[in-house]
């Protein structure tokens, strides 16, 4: 059962390690946009306002990239666990 506890802690640490920065990033973007609205609105990149870039466009590919990596890694951890369990 100690082994399961180690696995649980490892998976939780991995999920939190990705989740906390991600949610901090999303909520952080939101807070920056709302608390510094005027400053952010006046900045534009390629003619498109920065706050639109961040909230309406950029967040999506960033999320896709991050979580494709996450799923690959999480599944690899599971396979490693299964192999270890099979070898015991």
């Amino acid at each position: 059962m100690d082994r399961i506890e180690t696995i649980r802690k490892r998976q939780l640490a991995f999920a939190l390690g990705v989740g906390i920065p991600y949610f901090a990033f999303v909520i952080g973007i939101f807070l920056v946009v709302y608390l510094a609205g005027e400053a952010i609105s006046s900045v534009s990149a390629m003619g498109f306002p920065l706050h639109y870039w961040l909230v309406a466009i950029a967040i999506y590919p960033i999320t896709w990239g991050l979580f494709i990596w996450y799923v690959g890694k999480a599944n690899a951890i599971e396979e490693e666990i299964a192999e270890t369990a099979g070898g015991e």
């Binding site: 999920a15 990705v18 999303v26 999320t63």
Partner: peptide, 24 residues
């Protein structure tokens, strides 16, 4: 306008919690 996009963002990000903590 821009404020309406917050709904889209919230609905989308909802799946992340599901993926990280619950799906598997």
């Amino acid at each position: 306008g821009f404020d309406g996009i917050i709904y889209a963002l919230g609905f989308f990000a909802g799946y992340i919690a599901l993926l990280l903590f619950l799906a598997s």
